[in-house]
C-alpha cells in the first residue's frame, strides 16, 4: 500500500497529484525524469510536461490538472527570476495555494531569497527519496487542510 494520499472530502482517498516541470532552455531532463518515475513508484500521480517549458505553460498545466504540488527541476542560473515569475503567475491565476518546490543544483546562498519569494521546499542533489516524499506529503495535506 502506498502512503501518497491526501484525505478527500468524500469516501475515497485521493492520490497526491504533482506536476514535474522543467523550465527554461537547458536540454537535460534526466534528473526530472528520475524523480518523476520515483514519485510514481511511491504512489503519486505525476504529470510530466517535458523540456523547455515556459512559466506560463507550467502554470496553465497546473491549473488545468488541478495539481496539489508543482515541482520545478532547474539547472540554470536564472532560478530566482523563474521562481518570482512563477509565483506571480500563480497569484494571477488564483492558484497561489498550490505549493511550489524546487530541485536541482540551487546555490545554497540563494535559498533564503527563494524562500522569501514563496518556494516551499528545496531538494538539492543527494536528498534521500524518503525525505522528498515525506515533505511532499506534508505540503499536500497542509494544502488540503486549507481548502476545508
Amino acid at each position: 500500500m502506498s502512503t501518497a494520499h491526501t484525505q478527500s472530502p468524500h469516501t475515497t482517498k485521493r492520490k497526491i497529484k504533482i506536476l514535474v516541470a522543467k523550465i527554461g532552455l537547458d536540454g537535460h531532463d534526466r534528473g526530472a525524469k528520475v524523480i518523476a518515475r520515483a514519485l510514481r513508484d511511491a504512489g503519486f500521480e505525476v504529470i510530466y510536461t517535458g523540456l523547455r517549458q515556459t512559466v506560463d505553460q507550467v502554470v496553465a498545466a497546473a491549473v488545468q490538472e488541478d495539481v496539489d504540488i508543482i515541482g520545478v527541476s532547474h539547472h540554470e542560473g536564472s532560478h530566482i527570476y523563474v521562481a518570482r515569475k512563477l509565483l506571480e503567475k500563480l497569484r494571477e491565476q488564483g492558484a497561489e495555494d498550490i505549493p511550489v518546490v524546487m530541485g536541482g543544483s540551487i546555490p545554497v546562498i540563494d535559498i533564503d531569497t527563494l524562500k522569501a519569494i514563496g518556494i516551499k521546499e528545496f531538494f538539492l542533489p543527494g536528498t534521500p527519496l524518503k525525505e522528498v516524499i515525506e515533505k511532499l506529503e506534508t505540503l499536500a495535506s497542509q494544502k488540503a487542510a486549507l481548502k476545508q
Binding site: S2, R40, D41, A42
Partner: peptide, 14 residues
C-alpha cells in the same frame, strides 16, 4: 506495477 501513475500524454500537447 505501482500504485502511482506517470502521465505523459500532456507532454505532446503542451
Amino acid at each position: 506495477l505501482s500504485s502511482g501513475a506517470l502521465l505523459g500524454d500532456r507532454l505532446r500537447m503542451q
